[in-house]
Design a protein around this nucleic acid. Structure first.
Lengths: 199, 199
DNA sequence: ATTTTTTTGTAGCGACCACTATAAAAAATC
DNA sequence: GATTTTTTATAGTGGTCGCTACAAAAAAAT
């Protein structure tokens, strides 16, 4: 194994870090929503000009897709984090709601959930479809997990959890702080346990 | 009382009905959000040209304000409707949630609540401020009513109700139908009763 | 050193944004 | 009928939108 070092690509090297650019775009889209962040601002913030932007990401929606994937693959995927720590359905859902209350207040204006609210009211059908697909994925994961204990009522119970998360995301975007969200999360958790135990 | 008939205003008569125009604008803003509806489309749908538009409403945000007031003054103000029928706190909140489940699926694409979601992710600070003021008004009404029975826990209980409504509005905008919303509303109602009765 | 490939910056595309200057049309008052 | 007042339609303002044509610059391969 001498020549494992892959040869450099042929042309001029990129002058910016793609992952870093996706991270910055993710933050901007999260803070103000898809439509409110223009390509000009993205380019300025990322330090790249339009041709480099389109060579790297294809389109504004292409960058949004990368940002959504990065978001769902990181610590913002609160259900995945709650699930990873193990436990029964009630425990994991309680953890999920608590993580939402901790994460959704955000910082630097990045409140709520990018997947749930990033493309809300967007005029671009492509952005709407991307966010919608990410939502379906997350909701299906919650539903399937709940179904392991309550297959009959999984749909209703998942709806309760998802509506709670959407409501908390919206409230956070409207300025609700961590204390208020934690209070709501605790009540939502009690509601979920009650419904799960077969009210 | 002979001359009670007020004299006609002096100039040329308006060729369109202002209230009807506000109604149409309300429907458009409700369906797609503030930013996604342009002045050109509004003018076309209302059958009026830009100068008439600005003479009547001052600005796009001015028309949005009229639409918000009309919305909050009508049957879309579900808490006011629930309150008008009387009853104790638990009864009125249950009615509010049930009305949300009935109203939020909407028709012709007008899903969710215009006040809660009409200016979400808007790039216009004026539209955001108008929607925010309407939200505060509605939330304060819920809080003050709950305070008549539970003054200590009114803030937390109102947060529970408002987060439930925001979540149901978001879910409706994402396509949730009436059956699903009613199931969620019933669970939220049980949660509220449990918290009100002092868990 | 020349060729080839990729990224870069400059400049600008047509389309749409909210909004307005101007003057003609339609009504009441004189 | 002439004057005054308001609304109308035509046309266009500067600005921003997402996106692209073009050629110079920077790298590897020859």
């Amino acid at each position: 194994m001498v020549a494992t070092k892959k040869s450099e690509p042929r042309g001029r090297r990129r002058s910016f870090d793609v992952d870093e650019a996706v991270e910055t775009a993710m933050r901007l889209f999260h803070a103000r929503g898809y439509d409110a962040v223009g390509v000009a601002e993205l380019g300025a913030e990322l330090g790249i000009k339009p041709p480099s932007f389109y060579a790297a990401f294809g389109s504004k929606a292409g960058l949004f897709e990368r940002a959504l994937r990065r978001y769902a693959a990181g610590e913002a995927n609160i259900f995945a984090r709650a699930l990873a720590e193990g436990g029964d359905v009630a425990t994991v859902i309680a953890r999920t709601l608590a993580l939402a209350a901790a994460l959704y207040p955000g910082q630097n204006g990045t409140a709520g959930c990018l997947v749930l609210d990033g493309a809300r009211n967007s005029a671009d059908p492509e952005a709407q479809a991307l966010a919608d697909a990410a939502k379906r994925e997350g909701c299906a994961a919650v539903r399937d997990f709940i179904a392991t204990e309550a297959p009959d009522r999984a749909d209703a119970l998942a709806d309760l959890v998802v509506v709670a998360m959407m409501g908390m995301s919206a409230a956070a975007r409207d300025g609700a702080d961590r204390d208020r969200l934690e209070r709501v999360a605790a009540m939502m958790d009690r509601a979920f346990r009650r419904e799960l135990s077969g009210a």
